[in-house]
Design a protein around this nucleic acid. Sequence first.
RNA 1: GGGCACGUGGCGGAAUGGUAUACGCGCAUGGCUUAGGACCAUGUGACGCAAGUCGUGAGAGUUCGAGUCUCUCCGUGCCCACCA
Length: 824
Amino acid sequence: MQDKKYLPREIEPRAQALWEKLGLYQADSSESSPTGIGDPKKDLYVLDMFPYPSGEGLHVGHVEGYTATDIYSRYKRMRGFNVLHPMGWDAFGLPAENTAIKLKTHPRKLVEKNVARFKSQLKRMGFSYDWSREINTTDPEYYKWTQWIFLKLFHLGLAYEAVVPINWCPSCKTGLANEEVVGGRCERCKTEVIKKDMRQWMLKITKYSERLLEGLDGLDWPEGIKELQRNWIGRSEGAVVSFKGVGGRELGVETTNIDVYTTRIDTIFSGTYVILAPEHPFVEQNKACIENWEEVEKYRTATKSVAEIERTAKERVATGVPLKGVSVINPATGETMPVWIADFVLAHYGTGAVFADAHDQRDFDLAKKYNIPLKVSIQPVGDTDFSKIENLEECFEGEGVLVNSEQFNGLTSAEARPEIISWLQEKGLAKAETNFKLRDWVFSRQRYWGEPIPVIHCEKCGVQPVPEDQLPVLLPEVENYEPTGTGESPLAGIESWVNTICPKCGAPAKRETNTMPQWAGSCWYFLRFADPADQTLGFEWQKMERWLPVDLYVGGAEHAVLHLLYSRFWIKALYDGGYLPFEEPFKALRNQGMIQGPDGQKMSKSRGNVINPDDVVDQYGADALRLFEMFLGPFEQNKPWDDKAITGVSRFLYRIWRMEMSVESGVDVKKALHRLIKKVSDDIESMKFNTAVSSMMEFVNLIEKTGITKTDFEKFVLVLAPFAPHLAEDLWQNMQTKPYKNGQSATVQVWPEFDVTLLQDETMNIVIQVNGKVRGAVEVEKNLPDEAVQKIVAEQEVAKKWLDGKEIVRVIVVSGRLVNFVVR
RNA sequence: GGGCACGUGGCGGAAUGGUAUACGCGCAUGGCUUAGGACCAUGUGACGCAAGUCGUGAGAGUUCGAGUCUCUCCGUGCCCACCA
């Protein structure tokens, strides 16, 4: 039994050894880069989202993105660019720590092991990284600067302490950022998240809401990602309306006013009651006026114990409790309105209070349930039945024309909003306000495996930043780094580390024991690649000017609102602090699609549909895997792995390998070659790798029939080089006089130029259409005037046949393409 | 409920508003072979003997001409969500 034809095994290691020996792919960091042939070298920064080195090893999804940037980088190098294409490890975070606890080992050891494995896997793929710039976020030499940036944020007033109800994961025993809570559950372990009041370090990302939003417009990013960020920032234009409190007069006290945030002030005239979040401070403040305090208190306690996930469940029926004895005045109608609390109103959005009317389903349902009066103030336009709405049988949530709204009757919702705001504003009862969904970033974690937050707590002097010359604050070696579960970091138990002296007064003081979240290290790593060996600065101004911002950034879309938003925030803050000459980190961003399992489902261990790239490389080689992942489909689209289809690219590589040279290339081959050069160049620029591979296949199909000269084949090999660098290197070396010995590599040769004159045919293929239907085609001489073409076409048999007995109404001639006869 | 994608052969997919299905997989037939799960050649949307007709989720529109643009609907995927 004979196996399929594979390329010789030694090709790939031999090529990799040559590249290593020649020290290719290191970005030139000298003052003035040498000049390439033709154009002066330009610096270009091509970056992958660096991986979290998990225990599972490299994933085919990593290979997809990394192959794309590798092709791009290799191509750009051959076009004379000085390419910075680095790699590193985002190695802090929970998974390593959790595994370490399970295996009773140190997370650092796990990370070392995983990094070694990842690195060998990446090297085996033949990626052209500049390994001299490798970084690791858990390296003290690196996180020193992460801590340094934290201090800068602190000095800029962007880092602050607060006791806040945070998302607490009972399983990971740590606080989580909003972005890490998915559907009320911990993103990592899927445990239900609960609210817990805790002292936390916060980063004031909300200060940048507006700029983070505006900055998106100028970025060459996928629209979808920009939209996700816009939605996450969640800007809404509305108004804060003041409802005057009038309860409790008979008791000799005045209830306070209630401020309500609304985007639908056009419905203000139908507002019949106000609903507060159960946690709203108004409730406590006006306790004296509330007649049914017991009932209210019971409801509030019940709400607290209901986890967020249940509270927001869809099927859940709205419940609420009135605050008896308390009422407010509708600023528009002057009518007195009752005040309720209900748990569907969220304390942390807007003002934690809403005014309720018949134009919101939840308000409508609650009112129906408890017989609270309702009014209608919006009439739908179009053919919607108004009677049911008017009779309060149905809730209408849409926009329309105002009714029952005094002087505003007849205006549309959109017209009415500014009018009503300015009317109320004159009376001092409302003002336009912009709201954001974006919350400040909970920046502390009660875990071991993260960057220590570099501050010291002194009883006398309060919070003191660790002086810069004392950085890094090293993670101490610990016996037991399991989370305490009390809300304190395991670091709190290490007295020798915790106890220190206050940098200001010298008195005994304690170190901050919280660590930074996983995202901290990845917020700025792309700056460090410019010079990872710099001991005096984390990043130096001139090098920032030279390399940054990143020209092309590639990674998965799952980071749309986490890493990509946090990085933008840090960079803007550092820009404001005068530390950076730019304020957006990533000029162009591209997302790779997900490679799904052969069953079309997301790859996961539990589904058992995970493809291990090592197995594929073992069987087919790295070039085949690279080419296959690019050929699978459009780069940005999700696509299922196809077990069998890889044989196609494997055969393709083999057919190139055993190609025989002929004495001459026919004129067709010349033309095809130059078209191929253009096509592949264009496709790489626009990241259309799948069609680039198809065109190379078409070309090989052709030259197998016609033959090709050594000179032309050499050009083809160079075109192939970014995609299948190992095979290309081997073929190219074997065409040299001293293979593997002349100190040259195919992968840094000059990209072949195409000859424009060879792109055109001497003849044009003119399609013949009658009434828009294709009836035939004819070859005519190139550059014939339209009239002549029309004449030739009209003389064709097919044309005569279809035009016979018909009246020609019109003739459309598209130069070089077609002639369409419109007949009757 | 909201947002964003997407819908083309048996399958992955290709197609600046201009010859739909390139390229690859699979399949079929033949060759080479002791053998074929290797390799090579040819074929491969549907209906039809043919001329031809019909074909890109459904329907409408714009256009000389629509897979491509517009609208409505259906379906799938992803993300967000009692956000006032």
